[in-house]
Amino acid sequence: MTSLPGGSDNGGAGAEPTSLVCARCGTRAAGPQPTWTCSVENGTRRYFCDACSRENLRAIEGRLDSAWW
């Protein structure tokens, strides 16, 4: 996904999260990071840090839910 949280892809503007937590490893960030990945799984946004994104790139591009990787 290439748009920022709260963008037009989810029906309008919304509040951006103040801090992000990687759904895979628990790494914290103080806001949207350009190297992180956002995935929508079962209607819920999940964020993945750059390390987890790189490690699981093929699964992400194959649109597998994170439970598979």
Results as ranks from 00 to 15, higher is better:
L20Y: 06
S19Y: 10
R24V: 14
S39V: 10
R54F: 07
S19M: 14
A59L: 03
A23Q: 05
I60K: 06
S53K: 12
T18A: 12
S19W: 06
W69I: 00
R46H: 14
A29M: 06
T27S: 07
A23S: 15
L20K: 06
L20I: 15
G12M: 03
A29F: 01
T35Q: 04
A29N: 00
G43M: 03
S8I: 11
R54Q: 07
S19H: 12
G14V: 08
W69S: 03
G14W: 03
P32C: 04
G12E: 08
S66W: 11
G62I: 05
T18P: 10
T37A: 02
G12V: 01
A51I: 12
S3K: 09
L20Q: 07
L64G: 07
A23H: 10
S66M: 12
C52F: 02
D65W: 02
P17S: 13
T2H: 10
R45T: 02
T18D: 12
S8M: 01
D50Q: 09
C22K: 06
Q33M: 01
L57M: 04
E16C: 07
S19E: 15
D65M: 10
E16L: 11
M1K: 11
Q33A: 03
S8K: 09
R46M: 13
G14N: 05
N10M: 02
P32Q: 05
R54I: 10
C52I: 00
D65T: 12
R46V: 05
L4M: 09
Q33S: 05
V21A: 11
C52D: 12
F48M: 04
R28G: 05
P17R: 03
A51L: 11
A29S: 13
A67D: 14
A51T: 07
R63M: 13
A59Y: 09
R28W: 02
E41N: 13
R63P: 05
V21L: 14
A51M: 08
L4Y: 11
E55S: 12
W69F: 14
T18R: 15
A23R: 09
T35I: 00
S53T: 11
N56V: 02
A15Y: 04
A59D: 08
